[in-house]
């Protein structure tokens, strides 16, 4: 997608700038954006490493088990087909916890594991099973307790109140999640 959009953006800008006499601005604009990208990455480096480090500690503690227990009723509600598949449920739970803690890098490998376990029980191998559909939709819904990356970026950009978005993020995530889950439940019934 970006392989098409990116060159179009740049070519369009230059052509537009030549027509409207802004080529000098474009010339300086390009090089300003490059140094901005470098400066920003350096500030991100600090804040993002901080959160990755802290969440890595959380991963090693019993906070994980506590979250696991909290999640159980949700998982049973969302994945009725997996009633007797404890391994799949455990893997799904670990994936959700990694998502909740904002450990995107850890969530994906755990999720792939869960998909492979579910695929074993899947009757039609080239089509998503009900549980897989629900699992993927939940992973696209970004359930996060603390949106650490966004907070880190807000802190780097000198926000007066970097955490002020936590509650709006929760509300928006819940609304998105409910819409996604409801539609998926409908799809599961309608589309075979």
């Amino acid at each position: 997608m970006l392989n098409i959009l990116w060159p179009i953006f740049i070519i369009l800008s230059v052509v537009y700038a030549i027509i409207f006499g802004n080529i000098e601005e474009v010339n300086t604009g390009i090089f300003n954006s490059l140094s901005e990208a470098v400066e920003l990455s350096l500030t991100f480096l600090g804040t993002i490493c901080l959160w990755s480090g802290i969440m890595e500690i959380a991963k090693k503690t019993s906070l994980i088990n506590k979250l696991n227990k909290l999640l159980k009723p949700f998982i049973n509600f969302l994945f009725p087909d997996l009633k007797n598949n404890e391994i799949a449920k455990q893997e799904i739970s670990m994936n959700m916890i990694a998502n909740i803690l904002g450990l995107g890098n850890a969530a994906t490998p755990l999720g792939i594991k869960a998909m492979k376990t579910m695929q074993k029980e899947n009757k039609v191998k080239d089509t998503l099973s009900n549980s897989m559909m629900m699992f993927i939709v939940i992973n696209t819904a970004s359930i996060q307790l603390i949106p650490t990356n966004v907070i880190a970026i807000r802190t780097s950009l000198n926000s007066q109140n970097p955490t002020s978005i936590i509650i709006p993020v929760w509300i928006a995530t819940i609304i998105a999640g409910v819409v996604g889950i409801t539609l998926t439940k409908i799809l599961i019934k309608r589309v075979k």
């Binding site: 998909m115 699992f135 993927i136 970004s142 998105a176 819409v179 996604g180």
Partner: peptide
């Protein structure tokens, strides 16, 4: 996300899941 998880197990038919996920994005 959809591409990664479906390709990890070689699944081609996604039963309209993209629509549900995109609708959730718009709602969010």
């Amino acid at each position: 996300t959809i591409a990664i998880y479906t390709s990890a197990v070689g699944i081609k038919k996604t039963r309209g899941i993209l629509i549900a996920a995109l609708a959730a994005d718009v709602a969010g």
